[in-house]
Design a protein around this nucleic acid. Structure first.
Lengths: 220, 220
DNA sequence: ACCTGAACACCGTTCAAGT
DNA sequence: ACCTGAACACCGTTCAAGT
């Protein structure tokens, strides 16, 4: 076994993923292409393909890396507290990396066999078990929570990197307020709730609402 | 006002959307391109752009058309029954149009100002109101339900049109069962629940779980 | 083993030109 | 008003060739 040659410079999977995350953060999903990536890494397309199978794998790996960092390390308090910590960890990560929401939704629905889905499922699901939920409801209860967290946090994330969150939500709320009153009375009515539904408090209230359902159900 | 010239043939927005849905159903998301579309409609690219602004608008319109057809027309029974009817309507539509799940998730998170999000929000939200949920929880409660429905139905939809649903879920379950026992005890454990979680019964059990949370919360 | 970069087969979109 | 279809500026991916 020859000693591994030392390389201060040189490409690596890690460096590529790191650059991909930076590009996604800076320029959004459309900003990550093999051209921008090769330019930033000062290399050729083939070099990247040596370390990474294709763009899908690159996106999966980038998403997984960000999620791994976002999830809280050790369990501290009660199951409820832990679930809130996981939820807020993902919420904050999505705020910092707006592309993450779409990517996570895609991973869950289209690539549940990949590394990302189990990571999130495990973080939430363990606490569901600790909560005393009967085993036959574990999958459903965990699914509900995970989809609420990602969906809600995703609605919060600004669509365009350039717009601020407030401006984005305001635009949506305004368009809801302009809907036909006959056909859309409910949606018009909750438009103002949308305006600040991304408050962490509001977000956590939703978590508690789900937890109420999860814990009530099996005591009857 | 000159009388509208009659045209038995000729392009129209409706014909384009119809062809787009057919292509999506037949060949999946990757199968819908302006080339395949112009070929099927025996026309040029410019002709399509005369009726539709761009591909995003085409996808939004196609999604909206399918959703409008999938939602039950008139409210018959109790709010709970109506919510189940809406959920099953979307569930079945996603089963028939596997591309729909991803598209709906995208519409909700990236284009909530478009026509699709209000349509779904309204169908669920009205019943939330009828359920006696206090107004300040309307948005949150509706969000939880909508995201559960789409997320779960989406996990059910096969990723590839060619694979059957059973084979897809089996593959995912198998990969979950092969996870590291130390790091993923929970996910490994629920793998077998994943195998048939797409049962309509299981799906409706999740709805009831959320409804339990929604209706419990404000009675305390 | 690792990297280069031209080439390939595709995209969505535009636009001068037709009818 | 509506349609044609070539052209444009981009993609992700491959692969012979280098070191």
């Amino acid at each position: 076994m020859p000693p591994r040659t030392r390389r201060t410079e040189g490409l690596s999977r890690e460096r590529i993923v790191e650059a991909a995350v930076e590009l996604l953060d800076t320029a959004g999903e459309a900003g990550l292409t093999f051209r921008t990536l090769t330019e930033r890494l000062a290399t050729g397309a083939g070099a990247i393909y040596w370390h990474v199978a294709n763009k899908d794998e690159l996106l999966t790996t980038a998403t997984d890396a960000v999620v791994a960092e976002a999830l809280p390390a050790a369990s501290a308090g009660s199951p409820e507290e832990e679930i809130r910590a996981v939820a807020l960890g993902l919420f904050d990560a999505i705020e910092q990396h707006p592309w993450l929401a779409t990517q996570l939704l895609m991973q869950l629905t289209r690539n549940p066999g990949g590394p990302v889905a189990p990571r999130i499922f495990e973080a939430i699901g363990r606490q569901i078990g600790a909560l005393g939920v009967p085993e036959h409801s574990w999958f459903t209860a965990t699914s509900v929570l995970v989809h609420y967290i990602l969906g809600t946090a995703g609605q919060t994330a600004t669509a365009e990197v350039s717009t601020t969150r407030e401006a984005f939500l305001d635009t949506v709320a305004r368009s809801w307020e302009n809907l036909d009153p006959e056909a859309y009375p409910f949606t018009r009515g909750v438009a103002k709730q949308l305006r600040n539904h991304d408050d962490r408090e509001q977000f956590l209230a939703g978590i508690d609402l789900v937890l109420a359902g999860v814990t009530t159900r099996h005591s009857s």
